[in-house]
Nucleic acid binder design. Structure first.
Lengths: 352, 352
DNA sequence: TTTGGCACTCTCTCCGCTTGAGTGCTAAAC
DNA sequence: GTTTAGCACTCAAGCGGAGAGAGTGCCAAA
């Protein structure tokens, strides 16, 4: 029904809605009929515009903060604007260059992602998000073990996509340097190309063999391998530039600032949200109440998947007040995610 | 001269100063003679107290925000309070328990420190700081190399104090798994117990030998070793609980909030500050303009060194508005730093 | 030396007023 | 049948003055 109505809007109403959203994004103030009439794009008097605006309000695209104020777009107004009215403003070549350069700094993926998140925050003047989920679902290229202390071993896993994770685990057995080298070789040789999940299943199957053979070395290998795949490999979420919200007029008062900061600190919710977005291809825009998270403080999120097409790696995007320049944010996030993906595919290619 | 004057304060002036500082810390408001008279600790009329307060103001311990307001302690007033008047309030057993438990979670040092910083922030309701400098000056226990991609190697260094750092470096040569194992053994065997700096010097000396012998394997070893010791191992600085300053009345307005957040984001300054503090043993309190950093926003820092006595590891502390409960913060930071040190010595012992 | 009294200063808050932007409705004009 | 002008109405925000309240310094008396 909503979509049906969407297209029923006559051209004039569309123009008016577009103009109101754009002006409100630019100024942050409610837009009145007089301002709209004087902007030059309509040959109509304030009175006529008032009629159109009243219709748009009835349809749920606009709302008034109070009786004698101008109109402000609703979530639904923004949604319609983004879907049907927005003319996205392409990036300047300087911005493209900044992104290209920013992404090609270094080759360590953690650094690149961290950098990307800071860059995004700077270019957008919003809070930059870069999310890299656990590598559970990705294939493993190698797995090495290093003694850190008697019963503590560092596991270093290199994914087929070039991602490196490491983790220190406590072990039940003590291992010599020789043993660790052997185990590293064995596990990498035996299980390369499989996902962590698959490796776990195989290791568990191996347990039976070991029971039959009473092979001590095999027992230690299995034990270490299982500990390694079961270790909690956290997802990384870079939230950069939180101070940018201090500029936004909608968060001028201390109370809403506080709420907003605390909300941004609750990373679990964000992670959850980004994880669901990971399923979708293409640019995603979540407005206000469309997600549980953004509901709290009238946030919007513009995000897109990155990584090779065969194996998406994570999400990159921005989060900011509902009133943001979608026309600029959309190409920005889009371009950055593509640049990141390209970079990752390159790395994968040169090092695979 | 300052210290001379400090001790010249007569007992009554000391009592008045103490009471003013304490009340101001509790309320955040300027303290007037009337309030002070009514608090019950003095058998004096407001007029008499006014005389004492005028003296204290002349000596530079107090100041007035404006003519008809009460008095507020100056930096100097706080300093005198902390040095001579403060009765530090010992931790409750619940707090002690919280710290003991918080510190003993996990054994990975990064996790412990991160946890400690969050815990400190929670218990103090200030911003928690935990600083771990680069391990340049510490002895190395082992050094391992793992292939991540053709020309990218992960270096894992375990310090004698149990700290583990890892870093991915780009290399000039290509290495096989065998070679990396050999090099790891060689370098660990040859250089364990030395600092990174010493290792670098020895490696450079080895270069001459290699030139004479034209030993390819030695050449590769030296090259990799030098790349490894030269890699930039960043210091870690955990700044936790920045949102706690949102509660503080002194940062109620958006402008000073903004300044404060941006100041906290400039970690280099903080690192510099903490690095100089690292030289001193015992609890350190920096008030307001006493440090370049805190000058900006009337910050104070309460911090203490942690790590084994033989090898101090870093600094742990809190940063907050000048008007903070030093009497509580001091024992808190002190206890946490001792708990951390104990934990680290334990780990070192069980794993050394 | 302490205290009460007094004049003075300065901030903060409340109140009422005005201004201005904006609306909806109605009736006339195109 | 639109479009527009006019009008009455509403509400937020800004301004200024009055008054309260907290605090001071100084002086003279206890």
């Amino acid at each position: 029904m909503a979509t049906r109505q969407d297209f029923d809007l006559d051209p004039r109403a569309r123009d008016v809605l577009r103009e109101i959203v754009m002006q409100h994004i630019a100024s942050g103030e409610p837009i009145g009929s007089r301002t709209l009439s004087k902007c030059g794009k309509f040959q109509l008097s304030p009175a006529s515009l008032r009629n159109v605006m009243a219709d748009l309000e009835e349809l749920g695209f606009l709302t008034q903060p109070h009786t004698s104020a101008g109109r402000v777009p609703t979530d639904r107004g923004y949604r319609f604007f983004i879907n049907h009215l927005m003319k996205s403003r392409p990036l300047s070549s300087r911005e493209q260059q900044a992104i290209d350069e920013g992404v090609s700094v270094g080759s360590e993926i953690d650094d690149v992602l961290h950098h990307a998140s800071a860059l995004l925050s700077k270019l957008s003047d919003q809070v930059g998000l870069v999310f890299m989920p656990t590598l559970m679902q990705f294939a493993v290229r190698s797995m090495d073990f290093i003694a850190v202390a008697e019963s503590r071993i560092m596991v270093v896993i290199v994914g087929a996509n070039g991602v490196v994770v490491n983790k220190i685990i406590e072990t039940r057995f003590l291992f010599t340097r020789d043993e660790l080298e052997k185990i590293s070789r064995y596990i990498t040789g035996e299980f390369a190309g499989l996902t962590l999940d698959a490796i776990r299943r195989r290791l568990i199957r191996l347990t039976e063999q070991e029971r039959a053979q009473h092979d001590e070395m095999l027992q230690k290998t299995i034990s270490l391998g299982i500990d390694a795949v079961n270790a909690p490999y956290e997802h990384d979420l870079y939230v950069e530039g939180a101070s940018s919200i201090l500029n936004k007029p909608e968060y001028a008062d201390a109370a809403s600032l506080r709420k907003t900061f605390l909300a941004l600190q609750e990373k679990e919710k964000l992670v959850e949200l980004l994880e669901t977005c990971l399923a979708e291809e293409g640019l995603q825009i979540l407005i206000g109440a469309e997600s549980d998270f953004t509901q709290i403080n009238n946030f919007s999120i513009v995000a897109r998947r990155y990584g090779s097409t065969s194996a998406p790696l994570g999400m990159v995007g921005i989060i900011g007040p509902m009133r943001m320049e979608y026309a600029r944010m959309a190409p920005l996030v889009d371009y950055l995610s593509r640049a990141l993906s390209r970079k990752i595919e390159e790395e994968e290619h040169t090092n695979g």
